[in-house]
Structure formats: structure tokens, C-alpha cells
């Protein structure tokens, strides 16, 4: 994988309407790439992996993508 492929992966993640993610970091590793970041649902994480597999079939992919927690805050910030 070279710089051009890395750029294509990054753009595909942002520009494909089924994904539309600008917050995923693409990290090049020796066998392929690691996708890192956070998304809003497990479905979106699956879609990202599916898209990259489909568009870049020769590249080995590891995904380290979390789903952002959405619990109520446990404390407020006091702004004096």
C-alpha cells in the first residue's frame, strides 16, 4: 500500500454516502492498514470494514473502531 492508496481509502470513507465518516484514522502497517476511531453505532463500524474490503480487496484490514458511549454525564463542569 502506498500514499495514493491511503488517500483513496480516507476519501472513500468520507465520500461514500453509506459511510460518510471523516473521523476515522487510517494507519499503514506492514501487512495492510488499521482503521481507528469512533462511530455512532456497531452498524457503521461494520459498514466501514465492508466498504474498505470491497473497494480495496487486496489489502489486509484490521479495525480498531469503538462505538462512542452515550450515557448521561456523571458530573457538570463548574465555570466560575
Amino acid at each position: 500500500m502506498n500514499d495514493y492508496t491511503e488517500a483513496e481509502v480516507q476519501r472513500a470513507l468520507a465520500e461514500d454516502l453509506g459511510v460518510a465518516e471523516q473521523g476515522i484514522t487510517v494507519v499503514r502497517t506492514e501487512p495492510g492498514l488499521v482503521l481507528c476511531g469512533e462511530v455512532e453505532s456497531p452498524h457503521r463500524r461494520d459498514e466501514i470494514v465492508r466498504l474498505v474490503h470491497e473497494r480495496f480487496p487486496g489489502i489486509e484490514i484490521a479495525a480498531d473502531i469503538g462505538v462512542t458511549r452515550a450515557a448521561a454525564p456523571t458530573e457538570a463542569e463548574e465555570l466560575a
Partner: peptide, 12 residues
């Protein structure tokens, strides 16, 4: 949201 990692932040 990915920065605050909770449903919302509260500022008093």
C-alpha cells in the same frame, strides 16, 4: 460527541 464520550456535557 467522540471528544466528550457521553450523551452531553453540562456547564454550570
Amino acid at each position: 460527541h467522540p471528544v466528550i464520550k457521553q450523551a452531553y456535557s453540562v456547564f454550570n
